[in-house]
């Protein structure tokens, strides 16, 4: 196989991380999180391809995707609740854990 997906995984991961660390909107954070998740899923699948066990890793990937869907649902619910409460989606407004 001539294509190596690993650099792409890293780029995707880095983009997700960058997005998470720099964006202040909760929705954008979700996008960053999704990017991280996709990078990870891709890495799992690519690992199956490399090691010759695609069936196992693809089934794990399916599981990951379905769990991600759940995470997104919960996350959006939280964001919605936060928005209803504070009329804001800015992370600067959520500092209640400051020591």
């Amino acid at each position: 196989m001539s294509v190596n997906l690993l650099p792409f995984v890293f780029v995707l991961f880095g983009l997700g991380l960058f997005c998470l660390l720099t964006r202040r909107s909760l929705v954008k954070l979700l996008i960053g999180l999704e990017l991280l998740g996709k990078a990870t899923t891709l890495a799992i699948i690519w690992a199956g391809v490399v090691r010759g066990t695609p069936a196992t890793t693809q089934s794990i990937a399916l599981l990951v995707i379905s769990i991600e869907a759940l995470v997104v649902a919960v996350y959006l619910a939280l964001v919605y609740a936060f928005h209803r409460h504070n009329q804001s989606l800015d992370t600067d407004d959520m500092r209640r854990l400051k020591g």
Partner: peptide, 13 residues
């Protein structure tokens, strides 16, 4: 040690 605890999600990340 409290200084580390900013409460900002980005710092935590």
């Amino acid at each position: 040690s409290c200084l580390l605890q900013t409460g900002d999600v980005h710092w935590n990340l």
